[in-house]
Amino acid sequence: MTELDRVIHEPARLTIVALLAGVEQADFLWVLNESGLTKGNLSSHLAKLEGAGYVEIEKTYRGKTPLTLLTLTPQGQSAFKQYKKSLSGLLGSVRR
């Protein structure tokens, strides 16, 4: 049976990874608004994704405004691609 990546499979983390997969990079505020998670929840999931090497977090400033930039790493991109492939394979085998 196809194994699903446990780090990505958790719904909140899957939402974060799927959002970041569609952009070059985005900040914490955008992901917070789009995911509907709380600040604390988002921070803890981001820490897990950063620990797995899937997301890069850069704290910077734009002018005088603090900015936390999030980027899906190449490792994260390939893990997400692999996850989607595994998921469609799994769904295909269930349908058969």
Binding site: G22, V23, E24, A26, D27, F28, L29, V31, T65, L69
Partner: peptide
Amino acid sequence: TFPRTGYVEWKA
């Protein structure tokens, strides 16, 4: 926009 709802750098 970005200071209100977040910054996004779109893919080329």
